[in-house]
Structures are given as structure tokens and as C-alpha cells.
Simulated scan of single mutants.
Amino acid sequence: MSSPSEVAFITYINNVSAQINQYLSIFIFLFGTVGNILNILVLSQRSFRSNSCATLFLGSSIANFIAIITGLTTRMLSGWAVDLTNTNRVLCKLRAFVLNVARPVALWLILLAGIDRWLLSSPNIRYRQMSSLKNAQRSIIITLILSILLFSHIIYCYEPNLINAPLKCYGVTITCRLATDLSLMFMTIFFPLLFMLIFGLMTINNVRYSRNRTRPGDISMITMQGPPSTSRTTEQQQRNKIDDQLLMMLLVQVLLLFIFALPLGVQKLYSTITTNRVSSQAQVAIDNFAYNFVLLLNFIANGMPFYIYTLVGGNVFRKELQKMFATARQKICRL
């Protein structure tokens, strides 16, 4: 039987967890939904439509938006209204399935954007040709299908009204929880982040190689051959500028994903290791608090891309954003 001090501690931890869930969720929901909507609008502009990396960023932003809407709406409203996903079987399964499909899609598309930048920076022309809008669109479709297949077990596994679980709508058996946790841990977090790091370093190496390969003699040879067409040069410079700024946006985003997404993977690893451990009520309360906190950190990762792109995306992204606002202002003034 728990002592009065332990009961008070458990009550305190549960209250703190509930407050963080309720109020931090509101903040993440607001900055995440606004940011992703603006991201979708900017990346849909004409200057980005033919860019394969920007297309992958656009797909990732849509997946992030869906993840935030499905994951945070019920948490945000939990203190003021009844969460039907905790009690209704259909809503429980539907929400869990959509959320767990959207999460890996958002992260895998960032990984694919990293692979696209590596291909584009490669000295091998065959690799550079693989970086195309058509391949990016195919990758988005394949990623969505694989994510649906990977988390299809959730439709069978998840049930509402659970008591001894981190969430009331959760995997009903240990096997179901292990399947979901291992899929999330390795396929959604650890492996994508690892490959992001690998391809990011390889891309930086390719960029350094290409810069070192350009020598004064090469420039003089180009000069002797005569000046290139002005319009073609300007267009190529614009493309190179967009490519460089997209690479910077990608590298910063990968760094922040390590900070905000990796803790959830670590928590899932800990949860898997301690599955068969007999825990006290105080330990269960602490584990649930840790799970809810790192889960919210993961939602921050879903909401931050727009702010990364605005700060480190250079003039290209900010100019498109300003142009979009100016166009919207003109249309409003005409009404």
C-alpha cells in the first residue's frame, strides 16, 4: 500500500503532466499549424514547383500539418471537453492510424530531401540526373504506401478506455505495443535520423569536392571560349542559389530533428527494455510523465520547419513569403 507522501507525489506528477499536456499543446498547436500552412502556401509557389527538394519539403509540411491536427487537437481540448478518441473505438483507431502514418512520412520525406541534395551535388552525372521532380513525386507516393503498410496493425491493436497505459487509447496487448514502439523507434526515428546524418555529411563532402575542383585555370578556359548567354547565366545562378539555400535549410532541420525527435526514440527504447519490469505506481506516473513530455517535443519537430526556412532559407524563401503576403493584401483591398 502506498504511503501518504507517495500518493501526494503521484498526484503531483499526474497534475503536472495534465497541465503540460493541456497548455503546452495549445502553444505547439498554434505555432505548428500556422507555420505548416504558410510553408505549404510558400512551397506551392511557381519558383519552387519545379524543384525536387522543395517538392519533398512540401510533402513533409503537409504530413506535419496532419500529424499536429490529429495528435494535438484532442490533447489541447482535454481539459475543457471529453476526448472522444479515448472512449470511442472507431475514433481511437482512426486517430492513432492517421497520426502514426503521418509521422514517418514527414520524417522520411526530409530524409529523401537529403538524398536528393546528395544526388544533385554528386560529381557523377548519372546520380545528378536522378535528382528530378518526377522521382520526387514517385518517392512521396511510395513513402505514403510503405508508411500505411508499416502501421496497418494499429487498426487491429489500438483500443480505447485503457487504464494501465501511457494513453487511454493505446495498444491493448504487450505484443501490439512492442510492434508499434519498435516500428516508431527504429523506422520513424533512429534509422531516418542516422541516414540523414550520413547523407548530410556526404553532401557536404560533395560540395567541398566540387568547389576544390574549380580552379583559376578552369575559369580562364571558360573566358577564352566566350561569355555565356546572359539569360541562361542568370537563370542558372538563380537555380544554384535556390539549391544552396535549400541545402542549408535541410542541414539545420536535420540538426533540430536530432534534438526534438530523438528523445521519443530513447523513451521508446527504454519502454521496450522495461516491458516486463514490475513497477510501482510512482514509477508508472514518472514514466507516463516522461512519455507525454517527449511526445510533445516530437510535435515541436512537426511544427518548426517554417521557422527554420524563414530564418536560414535566405532571400529566396523570404521573398516568396513577402510576395505571397503582398498578393493577398492586394486581393483583400480590391474586395
Score class of each variant (00 low, 15 high):
residue 261 A to E: 00
residue 281 Q to R: 14
residue 208 R to L: 07
residue 212 N to K: 15
residue 297 L to G: 09
residue 248 M to L: 14
residue 300 I to H: 03
residue 240 N to E: 11
residue 175 T to N: 12
residue 285 A to C: 03
residue 261 A to H: 03
residue 269 L to R: 03
residue 205 N to G: 13
residue 267 Q to H: 15
residue 175 T to E: 05
residue 282 A to V: 07
residue 261 A to M: 02
residue 195 F to H: 04
residue 187 M to A: 10
residue 277 R to D: 10
residue 302 N to C: 13
residue 304 M to F: 15
residue 201 L to H: 03
residue 229 S to L: 10
residue 238 Q to E: 15
residue 182 L to N: 14
residue 186 F to S: 05
residue 288 N to L: 00
residue 241 K to Y: 08
residue 218 D to G: 11
residue 272 T to G: 12
residue 215 R to W: 01
residue 255 L to A: 11
residue 272 T to P: 06
residue 290 A to S: 13
residue 220 S to E: 11
residue 250 L to Y: 09
residue 272 T to Q: 05
residue 251 L to I: 12
residue 245 Q to C: 02
residue 269 L to Q: 05
residue 229 S to D: 15
residue 182 L to I: 11
residue 177 R to M: 08
residue 268 K to C: 01
residue 278 V to T: 10
residue 173 T to D: 01
residue 173 T to G: 06
residue 264 L to A: 09
residue 230 T to D: 04
residue 193 L to D: 10
residue 254 V to G: 07
residue 260 F to A: 09
residue 225 Q to S: 10
residue 307 Y to T: 04
residue 180 T to Y: 04
residue 189 I to Q: 10
residue 301 A to Y: 00
residue 205 N to H: 15
residue 224 M to R: 13
residue 201 L to T: 04
residue 310 T to C: 09
residue 198 I to R: 06
residue 236 Q to S: 14
residue 262 L to Y: 00
residue 255 L to H: 07
residue 176 C to G: 15
residue 255 L to K: 07
residue 197 L to I: 01
residue 291 Y to N: 09
residue 226 G to P: 05
residue 180 T to E: 12
residue 306 F to C: 13
residue 192 P to V: 00
residue 189 I to G: 05
residue 200 G to F: 00
residue 272 T to D: 10
residue 250 L to F: 02
residue 287 D to H: 04
residue 307 Y to A: 03
residue 214 T to D: 14
residue 235 E to P: 13
residue 220 S to R: 04
residue 306 F to V: 02
residue 247 L to N: 11
residue 173 T to F: 06
residue 270 Y to Q: 13
residue 209 Y to I: 10
residue 173 T to E: 04
residue 203 T to F: 03
residue 177 R to Q: 12
residue 259 I to S: 04
residue 205 N to I: 15
residue 308 I to M: 05
residue 271 S to T: 09
residue 308 I to L: 11
residue 289 F to L: 07
residue 221 M to W: 02
residue 222 I to W: 09
residue 292 N to T: 06
residue 309 Y to A: 11
residue 268 K to E: 07
residue 247 L to C: 06
residue 305 P to L: 03
residue 181 D to M: 02
residue 287 D to C: 00
residue 240 N to L: 07
residue 293 F to H: 02
residue 194 L to R: 14
residue 303 G to I: 01
residue 233 T to D: 13
residue 295 L to E: 13
residue 170 Y to F: 08
residue 283 Q to D: 13
residue 291 Y to H: 15
residue 238 Q to Y: 12
residue 176 C to V: 02
residue 257 L to P: 05
residue 258 F to D: 02
residue 268 K to Y: 03
residue 287 D to Y: 02
residue 299 F to P: 12
residue 220 S to I: 08
residue 198 I to N: 08
residue 201 L to D: 00
residue 308 I to A: 11
residue 263 P to S: 06
residue 181 D to A: 00
residue 178 L to N: 14
residue 258 F to S: 07
residue 235 E to T: 08
residue 289 F to C: 02
residue 233 T to V: 06
residue 210 S to I: 00
residue 200 G to N: 07
residue 242 I to D: 08
residue 286 I to T: 01
residue 173 T to C: 07
residue 299 F to T: 01
residue 233 T to C: 12
residue 191 F to L: 14
residue 191 F to R: 06
residue 307 Y to E: 01
residue 252 V to E: 03
residue 260 F to Q: 05
residue 187 M to H: 09
residue 302 N to M: 15
residue 309 Y to M: 15
residue 258 F to N: 10
residue 255 L to F: 05
residue 266 V to A: 12
residue 228 P to K: 00
residue 273 I to E: 00
residue 201 L to Q: 12
residue 172 V to P: 11
